[in-house]
């Protein structure tokens, strides 16, 4: 049997954290954008245990103020890109981020560019294309529907952006992933 699972990364992350904090009997609250408040002092053993457990799931605890804010920006963008509703238009993203994080956009933008080798715009673009890839291969949506959902102005504009980021058209990307999955299933090799 073979099937595809749809994963809501926002829910998975939250559940995972809850399970681990509950296991350690911590008094905690989960806030927006990946922020966690623990209402007690953690012993260094407990802290180590927690870090180790979470690292198995690719979850990293971030402490420096600057890195915390950068991670909050990334989390806010990812949360936006993966929401079920239609995405806001690109031009409203600065307002969305500054409202959500309570900083001027110019400040967020400079901070982000100074230590991620990319800009907020490019990072958002990359994340949107990642979401598009997921929709192309694992949903029933066609190109126009994906373009609408991710709020590109047209399906041609979406295809162009996809090609710009990946070097492939959405159709070609879909064909390659399909062939790759078939090959993995059958153990065949393409030469």
């Amino acid at each position: 049997m073979r099937f595809i699972v749809k994963i809501d990364i926002n829910i998975v992350g939250k559940k995972l954290l809850q399970e681990h904090f509950d296991k350690l009997l911590l008094d905690y609250s989960l806030k927006a954008n990946g922020e966690v408040e623990i209402n007690e002092e953690l012993s260094s053993e407990k802290y180590k245990e927690l870090t180790l457990e979470l690292s198995k799931y690719g979850i990293e605890i971030i402490e420096s103020e600057k890195n915390i804010l950068i991670q909050k920006i990334k989390n806010a963008i990812i949360e936006m890109v993966y929401m079920d509703e239609r995405l806001p238009i690109t031009s409203s993203i600065p307002t969305y981020l500054s409202d959500k994080l309570k900083y001027r956009y110019g400040y967020l933008s400079n901070l982000f560019s100074s230590s991620t080798y990319t800009s907020i715009e490019n990072f958002t673009q990359l994340q949107k294309i990642e979401r598009a890839k997921q929709l192309i291969t694992d949903s029933e949506l066609n190109c126009s529907e994906i373009a609408w959902k991710l709020n590109y102005s047209s399906s041609a504009h979406f295809s162009n952006q996809f090609k710009k980021v990946t070097g492939l058209t959405p159709t070609r990307y879909q064909r390659i992933i399909q062939k790759r999955r078939d090959a993995q299933n059958e153990g065949t090799i393409w030469e």
Binding site: T118, E130, Q134, G167, L168, I176
Partner: peptide, 16 residues
């Protein structure tokens, strides 16, 4: 680097 540091899925990383 973005894939490495932002938890992106390597299986969908195709660039031509």
């Amino acid at each position: 680097w973005q894939y490495q540091t932002s938890g992106l899925n390597r299986d969908s990383f195709l660039l031509n």
